[in-house]
């Protein structure tokens, strides 16, 4: 009983520089529960791709298993994609990324797919700083199997099942900073004003960009006693910063008050202007970022915004010193050195 979306769109829908409208970045109509945070996150991705003039066929969407991992069907229906085994999105993304470094990789995962069954894969993708936009739709429960607490559920948080979670939660952002991700952010599906720039920043970033999106499960974990409900998150959210994402070649027209902004130049030349609540904070300092997360957590607040960014960490291709050309474009001539060279190599080994 899935509903179909009418084909008509607003006659004055905006076009981006490719002449595409948002419709060109849409996918199938969602089959998730009505009001699912994941749908909002999906639409934030669509908006970011539209605004950045990304060509849909230059994108590869990867996902694992779970409600979150269904969402690649709901955006960018003209892109490449692979729906992997549970928790194995990072492996598939790594393989694809090795074969064709020119595509934009969007990895979609959830808290179960990342923090439980996929924890090992997650850790190593971070460690290698794979050039992947890893978006974790985090609702603190296993929605697809009727709402059991996940590894990111806060201790004491109580979903629809009614039993408080007895375990400590995993903070995916802290973990990501610690294990080597070079762009770490946290957003909330209910705040696209913040989430869309975070995603755009991630897309401009080269290396592993991890975004933990608190994305309420409207069916099983939107109770008044849950720490991942729309209401709780709205009441406890603390934005460390707001920022403007300025794409490459766009003139900077805004003036910023000294001390409260920090400028981060991305690999592709785009600029992120951070407007910080506290001018002493430095988002490129790992220690500072982890401390800040812990401090806010101790106050019972949920820190969001761009938490950490480090343009110095090398991504996997740089570490491995791979060909600048995508492997899938290398021909026999490029790969086979020829008989003379081969003989030389053989001779050197004799």
């Amino acid at each position: 009983m899935t509903s179909t979306k009418p084909a008509f769109r607003h006659p004055k829908l905006a076009q981006n520089s490719l002449g595409l409208t948002r419709k060109d970045y849409e996918g199938a109509v969602s089959t998730l529960c009505a009001g699912c945070g994941h749908d909002s996150t999906t639409n934030a991705i669509i908006q970011a791709c539209f605004e950045l003039n990304i060509e849909p066929h230059r994108v590869a969407k990867m996902s694992g298993i779970g409600c979150s991992s269904k969402t690649p069907a709901y955006f960018l229906d003209r892109s490449h994609g692979f729906n992997a085994v549970h928790g194995r999105m990072p492996s598939i993304a790594t393989g694809a990324n090795m074969a064709n470094r020119d595509l934009l990789y969007i990895g979609i995962s959830g808290d179960g797919d990342t923090a439980s069954i996929g924890m090992g894969q997650f850790a190593h993708a971070l460690r290698r700083n794979l050039n992947l936009n890893y978006i974790c739709m985090n609702n603190g429960c296993y929605g697809l199997t009727k709402g059991q607490d996940s590894a990111t559920a806060d201790m004491g948080s109580t979903g629809k099942r009614g039993i408080p979670n007895p375990y400590a939660s995993i903070d995916l952002c802290e973990l990501a900073i610690e294990l080597g991700a070079s762009y770490v952010a946290r957003g909330f599906s209910g705040d696209k004003k913040q989430l869309v720039p975070l995603i755009k920043g991630a897309f401009a970033h080269s290396g592993l960009a991890f975004i933990d999106v608190i994305s309420p499960c409207v069916t099983f974990n939107n109770t008044s006693t849950s720490t991942k409900s729309y209401e709780y998150v709205r009441e406890h959210i603390e934005a460390t910063n707001t920022f403007d994402f300025i794409p490459l070649q766009r003139e900077i027209l805004t003036d910023y008050a000294e001390g409260t902004t920090q400028e981060v130049i991305m690999h592709d030349g785009s600029i992120i202007h951070l407007h910080k609540v506290d001018s002493k904070e430095d988002v490129t300092n790992r220690l500072n970022s982890v401390n800040k997360l812990e401090e806010e957590k101790a106050k019972g607040r949920l820190l969001t915004g761009l938490l950490y960014v480090n343009q110095q960490i090398r991504e996997t291709h740089d570490i491995l010193n791979t060909s600048l050309r995508p492997l899938n474009s290398l021909t026999e001539n490029d790969l086979c050195p020829g008989n003379t060279e081969l003989q030389k190599i053989n001779d050197s080994l004799r």
Partner: peptide
């Protein structure tokens, strides 16, 4: 309303 944006996201006419 819980302001989940579901209606905003689905509306074909961006109303």
């Amino acid at each position: 309303c819980i302001e989940c944006d579901a209606c905003v996201d689905i509306c074909p006419e961006s109303c």
